[in-house]
Write a protein that binds this DNA or RNA. Sequence first.
DNA 1: TTTTTTGTTGATTGACGAGTCAATAAACTT
DNA 2: AAGTTTATTGACTCGTCAATCAACAAAAAA
Lengths: 191, 191
Amino acid sequence: MPKLGMEPIRKTALVKATITEIGRAGSLDVTVGQIAKRAGMSTALAHHYFGGKEQIFLAAMRHILTLYSAEVRGALATAATPEARLEAILLASFSATNFRREVVSAWLNFYVLAQTVPGARRLLAVYQRRLHANILHALRPLIGARADAVTEALGALIDGVYLREALSPRPSDGKAAVRMLQAYLSAELRN
Amino acid sequence: MPKLGMEPIRKTALVKATITEIGRAGSLDVTVGQIAKRAGMSTALAHHYFGGKEQIFLAAMRHILTLYSAEVRGALATAATPEARLEAILLASFSATNFRREVVSAWLNFYVLAQTVPGARRLLAVYQRRLHANILHALRPLIGARADAVTEALGALIDGVYLREALSPRPSDGKAAVRMLQAYLSAELRN
DNA sequence: TTTTTTGTTGATTGACGAGTCAATAAACTT
DNA sequence: AAGTTTATTGACTCGTCAATCAACAAAAAA
């Protein structure tokens, strides 16, 4: 009993299911069958809409990146001062939506994926460039020439906190993460 | 033409081959066949000595952790002041042996492995505790109560730099990494 | 010298999973 | 009404891979 206009619905269902499954498996060792089942359809349909496993993964990654970007952009929109811009970036990065184990695990695995799949690498590069630009733009007026080095470090620190979160046995605590990052920043700004 | 006492030789060959293959594949998607071939033996022999793929992976991980620990311990041995201890840890972490793409990629993948395989998680926990203790011990006399927070941040920062290295298109530059970490430290110590 | 232990592999098994295909059916077009 | 497009799946193919096994060989022990 096929209803028309299913494509976008099926696709988003598959993308969400993919993130969930990667999160729960903690690896990319997830079969199309598992994903399709969680999304409530047959394997064949998943292939029909995406053409292959790799494309499903890429779509899922694109989805996470898009969500994150939107959140950052939204938070930046209302930030007036450089300090507020930095805070906005941090809050978005560790918001309840983004800083969930599932999502963090997916991120980690996308990093791994990016080592092999050029498409994934490109996506990640886009994200990294954007983050870099945002941070740099906020830092420049505050510390001038040192901004480059601090941007680098802050980016690495964010990734590091994510990485550790993926393995932490405790429940996610975005607040604590933000506090830590802000402590780092104030140490750098104070100088 | 079997020579006796092959076991340790074969085992180390397999461990090295595993790290190489994971590094070059950029993922844990490496077959026992590939590993065995690179180590110059048959698949069956690999199974014979290790019993299974998982144990090969764990042995490889143990090997990397052991090398790293030994290097840190060696560097710490000759460090007199707390500052020197910190530097020793950083230098060891980003030494030419440890901070190679191959090894870094293996690390990243072990992080992923640790999400699923309890044995891997345990190994990683040991490493993290040790690193934490070492840094904390050096920082305490310098900044007292703030040492805990800074230790946390420094650990995450190290991991983050590793993570980014795995994806960096440029060749590894341990020196630059150490400089960056030291810049962070001096900012924190100055306060 | 017979037996046991250690080293070694080619061939095989058995499972699993990605991707394809043919078939079925509802909706929309002409 | 006939034809086309969209949705959907069960069944199948084909490849891959972990793990096992039987068999062979050399050294050591008996």
